[in-house]
Write a protein that binds this DNA or RNA. Structure first.
Length: 814
RNA sequence: GCCCGGGUGGUGGAAUGGUAGACACAGGGGACUUAAAAUCCCCCGGUCAUUGUGACCGUGCCGGUUCGAGUCCGGCUCCGGGUACCA
């Protein structure tokens, strides 16, 4: 019978499902593997990126299952989020209906790929049962002061009508819709991720060698720890009076305390309270005040692109070391959100300060040797113009000056972070409601745990205007959980990244406990950390940082224990490209997995995906290479007729001819390589190539036993990658024996050769090839090598002879 | 600017410091066929010469270490990704 993928694949998918073949076992004494691919957003259809992601994960899961590990390989749905609401606005469909029907369709697509997911552990994050426990965590975080509500300047996306976290702003634009982000003052809920800055940074060390170095670097940069000096500038007496004694001065932070003698002015962010006060009390000229306000209202992108701009505020401060009186400016490049929104300015040793000082003709003073007049010198040198510290290396002066400030009690050594707290409020409908109540008498009150989940109202109008929950006529009406009086429910919903921050623990929790708890500690202790996590690099900061934070926070809240990091090993797969650019609907260069599977079958889709490039690299789509993958499977299936023995034969190696021996070597080389590939490198492309070589070599001989052994091993090796056809062949030929029972023994005798082919090189350049007896002595081999290349030795002396066993001979001649 | 990756045939990609280009795609030639599809066989980095065959060049560029470098080291260069006035 010729290869008919659709029949074979349906048959095996049914068998697997009926046998519940992919359910993890409850026996915690078994060795476990937790293989997790990032769960998908139910957008409607799978795309090739999903196929790739899940083919990689499935190969790992099936491999370990075959090695008798207890394998947890779950799938679920990251189901809340904007697209559901956009669909509602566009097509009038209810987000819930849209989401669940998408899930149903995509689940079918996953089934048709033959992915070995657990069916009992599947959930969608919009399930009320999931929301219930998430809300409990949120309340606990509030009680433990990890979550707070505050009104600050936030990133606002006008097209999504919602606030965004810092991490969700990419180059000043919304991560989802690419709309330019505006700054807006409004209240919101924040998670104190900064509290974990050091732990999040330090624990990156635990992941070295297990996570891609660039992800570690990106997270480290994002946390952005820097050490330096924090000190205050005190206003001059005249300035204090001008400010009606409301301000003593202000704090600044610098990583360059060694340049503190070079400070010639200071600068405040346009939003700084002191600047606002000056404007409010009309202490600045009208047009300057307007310009400063305008500067403060610019978006981050606008500011980044803008020329440096600033204004003298007409007030002065006293230099804490020299006692000099120096002016205070406001400048558009000073960030309000970092280091207190104020800086000391050293134009001689800082590029930005130099540019600004040059523009406004501010004084400059070099305090580190080595620079040239007319530029900022940021290199190393010794201190000059710095009183008693003159002559000291600037690298040493950093610590000295911190000591000096600390001794005088006007400053201290301190650490700053770029990381900002995680804003989790979203002014949208399709999310988990933030379980708080606003009571006139009691203030902000968390909902009673027994009232959870706070579910979304079904009857809702989604127009794209405003917050649907806020617009709902009755939903927000409630009783205060504390005093029982009439109160208002919070109408913000949680950032969807909250759901994906703990789903790895939910999967690990046995489904029969899902009603009674959010996370089961014992189950989690057994299954976590995730042994292999697979997903796109685009989550390098967002999801992966949040999930790491949540893990640490849940641990401190007592919901889990003994777990430092959720994801032990991380593989970031490359994008799927078509004609050099990312597949996307808008470009119209997509390949639809459904039609691919219909035409060639799931095995071909999976084989191509894993063969065309190593998983970490980008994958360039190629229709004819897909054909090639299909051809290989067809050939493999066709060759099963070469086998007439139904069990792994014991082969008398010495009785084999040359071609038969080569075939065996190729087969066993593939077997040898497979361990490294499945457990370490994930270079499935090389394993597949090895199997192709083995099949090619088998084709060059006729020995029935060698064929039997060859197909027994090849289908064993490829089963995690092309499971349906391998299951079919294996059932027909071997009663499926090669797909259970662990590793196949590597027989060393196969690699023993009578003769060995060696390259002969002269001065490192290959000149000939010799075949020598495997037992030949070094002397004999060298002698033979010399005979093979007479013309290269003519009139020369051999000064050195190097024999690389089983590889080559190198003769050094003069 | 800074921080990561990475430059190997026409293409995707292989190579624990040891015969560069495995495996595959595309291309060319042939067998089978009335024909096509499918399948099978052969060739396939460049230059030069050629009777078999051989010589030289060749892993972005320059240099170093080594008997031997795609691989290690130093300096450049180009491409991709991240980040960006973080004081």
């Amino acid at each position: 019978m010729s290869y008919s993928p659709n029949d074979i694949e349906k048959k095996w998918q049914t068998i697997w499902s009926e046998k519940e073949a992919f359910e993890p076992l409850d026996d915690k004494t078994l060795e476990k593997k937790y293989i997790l691919s990032m769960f998908p957003f139910p957008s409607g259809r799978l795309h090739m990126g999903h196929v790739r992601n899940y083919s990689i994960g499935d190969a790992m899961a099936r491999y370990y299952r075959k090695q008798n590990y207890n394998v947890l390989h779950p799938i679920g749905w990251d189901a809340f989020g904007m697209p559901a609401e956009n669909a509602a606005i566009k097509h009038g469909r209810h987000p819930k209906d849209w989401t669940y029907s998408n899930i149903a369709y995509m689940r079918k697509e996953l089934n048709s790929l033959g992915l070995s997911f657990s069916e009992t552990r599947e959930f969608a994050t919009c399930d009320e049962l999931y929301t219930k426990w998430e809300q409990e965590f949120i309340i606990k975080m509030f009680e433990e002061k990890l979550l707070y509500r505050e009104s600050t300047t936030v990133n606002w996306c006008e097209s999504c009508h919602t606030v965004l976290a810092n991490e969700q702003v990419e180059e000043g634009c919304c991560w989802r819709c690419d709309n330019e982000v505006a700054l807006k003052e409004m209240p919101g809920y924040y998670l104190d991720i900064k509290k974990y800055s050091d732990e999040l940074l330090d624990d990156l060390k635990l992941l070295e060698g297990k996570w891609p170095s660039q992800v570690l670097a990106m997270q480290s940069n994002w946390i952005g720890k820097s050490q330096g000096l924090e000190f205050s500038f005190t206003f001059s007496e005249a300035s204090k009076a001008k400010l009606e004694n409301k301000f003593e001065g202000f704090e600044v932070f610098t990583t360059r305390p060694d340049t503190v003698y070079g400070v010639t002015y200071t600068a405040l962010a346009p939003e700084h309270p002191i600047v606002k006060d000056l404007i409010k009390n009309r202490l600045l000229e009208r047009d300057i005040a307007d310009k400063i306000t305008a500067m403060g209202n610019m978006t981050e992108v606008e500011r980044a692109k803008a020329q440096k701009e600033g204004y003298d505020l007409g007030i002065t401060v006293i230099h804490p070391l020299t006692g000099e009186e120096i002016p205070v400016w406001t400048a558009n490049f000073v960030l309000a959100s970092y280091g207190g929104g104020a800086v000391m300015s050293v134009p001689t040793h800082d590029e930005r300060d130099f540019e600004f000082a040059t523009k406004y003709n501010l004084p400059m003073k070099y305090v580190i040797s080595g620079g040239e007049e007319g530029s900022a010198y940021t290199g190393e040198g010794v201190l000059i113009n710095s009183d008693e510290l003159n002559g000291m290396k600037n690298t040493e002066a950093k610590a000295e000056i911190i000591k000096l400030f600390e001794a005088k009690n006007v400053g201290k050594g301190t650490t700053n972070y770029k990381l900002r707290n995680w804003g989790i409020s979203r002014q949208r409908y399709w999310g988990a409601p933030i379980p708080f109540v606003h009571c006139d008498a009691c203030g902000l009150v968390p909902e009673k745990v027994e009232n959870l989940p706070i579910a979304l109202p079904e009857d809702v109008e989604i127009t794209g205007e405003g917050n649907p929950l806020e617009n709902h006529p009755t939903w927000s009406n409630c009783a205060c959980p504390k005093c029982g009086e009439k109160a208002k429910r919070e109408t913000d919903t949680l950032d969807t990244f909250v759901q994906s921050s703990w789903y790895q623990f939910r999967y690990a929790t046995h489904p029969n406990k899902w009603e009674s708890c959010g996370i089961d500690k014992e189950d989690v202790n057994y299954w976590l950390g995730v042994d292999q996590y697979i997903g796109g690099i685009e989550h390098a900061i967002l999801h992966l940082l949040y999930a790491r934070f949540f893990t640490k926070a849940l641990r401190d809240l007592g919901f889990i224990e003994n777990i430092k990091e959720p994801f032990e090993n991380l593989l970031t797969q490359g994008m799927v490209l078509m004609d050099g650019s990312k597949m996307s609907k808008s470009k119209g260069n997509t390949v639809d997995p459904d039609s691919l599977i219909e035409k060639y079958g799931a095995d071909t889709a999976r084989l191509f995906t894993l063969f065309a490039a190593p998983p970490q690299k980008e994958l360039e789509w190629n229709d004819s290479a897909v054909e090639g993958a299909f051809r290989f499977i067809k050939k493999l299936y066709d060759r099963r007729t070469k086998v007439t023995i139904d069990t792994l034969p014991t082969i008398e190696q010495n009785a084999l001819n040359k071609e038969e021996k080569i075939a065996r070597v190729k087969v066993y080389e593939a077997l040898k390589r497979s361990i490294d590939v499945y457990e370490k490198t994930f270079a499935f492309n090389t394993l597949i190539a090895g199997c192709m070589e083995a099949l090619n070599a088998l084709d060059k001989q006729k020995n029935e036993q060698v064929w039997t052994e060859g197909l027994y091993i090849i289908t064993h090796l490829l089963e995690p990658i092309i499971p349906h056809v391998c299951a079919e062949i294996s059932e027909e030929l071997f009663e499926s024996k090669n797909l259970t029972g662990g590793k196949i023994e590597i027989l060393d005798e196969v690699f023993v050769q009578d003769t060995i082919t060696l390259g002969v090189a002269v001065n490192g350049k290959r000149r000939a090839e010799i075949e020598v007896d495997a037992e030949a002595s070094k002397e004999d081999i060298i002698a033979m090598a010399k005979e093979s290349i007479p013309k290269w030795l003519e009139g020369k002396n051999v000064v050195k002879e190097i024999l690389v066993p089983k590889k080559m001979v190198n003769l050094v001649v003069k």
